[in-house]
Amino acid sequence: MVDWRRPAIVVAEDIALVKLVHVLGGVYIWEIVSCLDFEYSFISKKRKFTWSFLLYLGCRWFPLFAIALQFLGFDVSHKINCQACAVFSFMFAYLSFMCTSALIILRVAVLWNHSKIIIAFVCAVWIANTAIYVYSLITLRSTWIGILCAILHTHHSRISVLSTLTTDIVLLVLMLAGLKRWKNAPKSGGVWRLLRTQGLIWVLIVTLVEVPPAVFISLDLNDAMNMTFQAFALVISPLGAARLFRQLIDYPASNGVVKVVNEPHSEHSIPFSHQSHQTRKQHGSEGGTVVLDILSVKTTDSEVPKGETFEGANIV
């Protein structure tokens, strides 16, 4: 049986953690650089700016700041203020998780048609999770050990890891439940098409990546093992949320459909062009009801009198 507390094992795990963080940092830097054109499209006003874009930026850049501070703590050749370095690194990591959850909460709100009860519930969960992050930062301790900055008593972060996992599970369940409420679900290609279209596969990845950190920090084998899978979560979670955001904006035009119902038992579909940075407009017939597909901002039916225009916008 392996003694995970044996000094030789601890040193080996510390070295493995340093190498892993550098590999993950390289992957994330590539992700940042490869998608800069998307952000530039907002800055250059080719896409319509929305405040949710700020959450997207948080998902993208806060992890990079956290990783940069981890590089600093691992690679410096002289002693630095480890406590400050660790606090700011974890602060940026927690900010990225908060932005990730906030983006998913926006999705949940749309799927539940902006239900006040659902919004109040998910906001309460998000605030409670944020409070736990603040507590974790206050209790965080770090010091210089050997040639690198080391986090002390990493098992104390168990509460924040479990809180993040719980929050993601709650949001995933609410999204799945919200999808079942869609009236046009049977006509949209089945559950798997909805999952793909809504980007839930990324939400599932964001949730699953939080499981290993929760398991290993509960086992508390040693400090390095406690931190290893948290490094994975720091990269994969915001990466998944950011890709979800881009998927919803850049969803192919061929999948956009507006269904116009003229009578209770008859309907026809009208394809429309998908331009994520512009408002889409469709004319309804007299007495008809326009039902937007899953790219629309509302799931409820809207009465469209003759000659008037229904305006829809993609979910961001």
Rank of each mutant, 00 (worst) to 15 (best):
D3C: 05
I9W: 01
V11L: 13
D14R: 15
L24S: 06
W30P: 00
V33K: 11
V33M: 15
L36W: 09
D37E: 04
F42W: 13
F42S: 10
K46S: 09
R47K: 10
F49C: 00
S52K: 06
L55M: 09
L57P: 00
R60I: 13
F62C: 15
P63Q: 06
I67P: 11
L69N: 03
L72D: 06
F74N: 15
D75E: 14
C82L: 04
S89I: 03
S89T: 09
M91L: 15
M91S: 14
A93I: 00
S96R: 03
M98A: 13
I104V: 15
L106N: 14
V110P: 00
W112P: 01
V125M: 09
W126Q: 10
L137D: 03
S142C: 15
I147M: 07
L148A: 14
A150V: 14
H153L: 03
H153R: 07
S160G: 02
V161D: 11
V161L: 10
L162C: 10
T164L: 11
I169K: 01
L171K: 02
L174H: 11
M175G: 14
L176N: 05
A177R: 13
K180M: 09
R181K: 15
P186D: 00
P186S: 00
K187M: 00
G189W: 02
V191T: 15
T197V: 05
Q198F: 02
L200K: 01
W202L: 12
V203P: 02
L204D: 04
E210V: 00
V211T: 07
V215I: 15
L219C: 03
D220K: 05
L221K: 09
L221Q: 05
N222A: 02
M225I: 15
T228C: 06
Q230N: 11
A233T: 07
S237N: 06
L239W: 14
Q247E: 05
Y251K: 04
G256W: 14
V257L: 12
K259Q: 07
H265S: 05
S266M: 11
S269K: 03
P271R: 09
H274Y: 08
K281V: 12
H283E: 09
E286H: 10
T289L: 15
V290P: 00
V291H: 12
S296D: 12
V297C: 10
K298H: 11
T299Q: 08
P305G: 07
A313Y: 02
N314F: 11
